[in-house]
């Protein structure tokens, strides 16, 4: 039996623009088990990065958590911690890797200085021990001459190397959870393959869970066990990766997968979802947030926001098409897709 590491329940995040509040993450619930590789996939503006920032209490001032809680190890409520208490969590229990490693590293300090900062803050080591630890860590993330890297500055390293340094920094305190926010989006495919491989291997060594945040379904398919699909601040579908790719239910997930899968087949027109992602102002309207772009929209979708319907044991979908338990409606749904 797997035990829960992170439990997000009914999380809502609001943004204040001109004294008006807009809801950008809406009642999001998800659970990450120990050693699990969990993915959140969604387009820009879907709220996937905001979710990760709220886990670490790093939301910018205009945003705040308006509802819900985030439990770490079933005991610590991260949304209720003071700033000081949060410092002990960040880097120690939960670490994060960002998309652009150049902006995440300080250009004025050497790599050794920046990694040792994390260690100094969380653990008690002598200088010598610390240096050895950092060298070992750099060796683990695949640097052939770690001693040389110690004295380098970020601008002397390539994008892939900087991301390795970020991974070394994130994992040096052996955190329980590693949040990777688009870790390979800025990198080339061959470097992306290196980095994903490395993250997989290292987190297995350290028994670390991963929360992978990405827009790339391919990255999810390669690295994750479970996946949540987000759209306009709501979690629309959640399932094991195998299940979601084989049997997507929510019209948005279906559309997303279709537009990826039809790539490469020149004989067919690319499947595309019409319209655009809603603006924050449109988010306060009632009803399903995908209704305006959905090809299966019904009257109820425009009036009432659908709850999470259970498709099967490990598959939930937030769509009115599945209100009778999924199975039967699902057939109807598959049929409408084929007849399109």
């Amino acid at each position: 039996m797997m035990s829960t590491l992170l439990d997000i329940k009914d999380l809502s995040v609001d943004v204040t623009i001109d004294k008006q509040e807009f809801n950008v993450v809406n009642n999001l619930s998800l659970r990450i088990d120990k050693k699990q590789k969990y993915g959140i996939v969604g387009e820009s503006g879907s709220g996937k990065s905001l979710t990760s920032l709220s886990i670490l209490n790093l939301l910018p001032d205009v945003l705040h958590v308006s509802n819900g809680h985030i439990m770490l190890d079933q005991t610590i409520n991260l949304t209720k911690l003071s700033k000081k208490e949060m410092l002990n969590i960040r880097g120690n229990e939960i670490s994060i890797i960002f998309q652009e490693p150049m902006t995440a590293l300080d250009p004025l300090f050497t790599i050794e200085h920046q990694i040792s900062e994390v260690l100094k803050f969380h653990e008690k080591y002598t200088k010598k021990e610390m240096k050895q630890l950092i060298i070992d860590m750099l060796d683990k993330v695949g640097f052939s001459r770690p001693k040389q890297i110690l004295k380098s500055y970020p601008h002397q390293l390539s994008g892939g190397m900087r991301q390795r340094v970020m991974i070394a920094m994130a994992l040096i305190c052996k955190p329980k959870l590693l949040i990777a926010d688009e870790p390979t989006t800025a990198l080339d495919v061959t470097i992306q393959a290196q980095i994903l491989d490395l993250m997989n291997a290292l987190t297995e060594d350290y028994d670390t869970s991963i929360l992978m945040i990405t827009h790339d379904l391919g990255v999810i398919a390669e690295t994750c066990e479970r996946v949540a699909v987000m759209y306009a601040g709501t979690l629309v579908e959640e399932a094991s990766v195998q299940e979601l790719f084989k049997n997507p239910t929510h019209p948005y997930s279906v559309g997303l997968l279709d537009s990826v899968k039809s790539l490469g087949d020149r004989t067919k027109k690319l499947y595309s979802i019409p319209g655009n992602v809603p603006t924050p102002a449109q988010l306060n309207e009632s009803g399903c947030r995908f209704a305006s772009r959905c090809s299966h929209v019904m009257d109820i979708c425009r009036k009432q926001d659908p709850p999470q319907f259970v498709i099967n044991d490990d598959h939930k979908s937030k769509c009115w098409l599945y209100k009778d338990g999924g199975k039967k409606n699902n057939e109807h749904y598959q049929h409408t897709i084929e007849s399109k």
Binding site: V189, Q192, E222, Q242
Partner: peptide, 12 residues
């Protein structure tokens, strides 16, 4: 190697 590095959108 470039082609083999593309993440596949099929987890199986």
């Amino acid at each position: 190697s470039l082609l083999s590095a593309i993440p596949s959108s099929d987890p199986t």
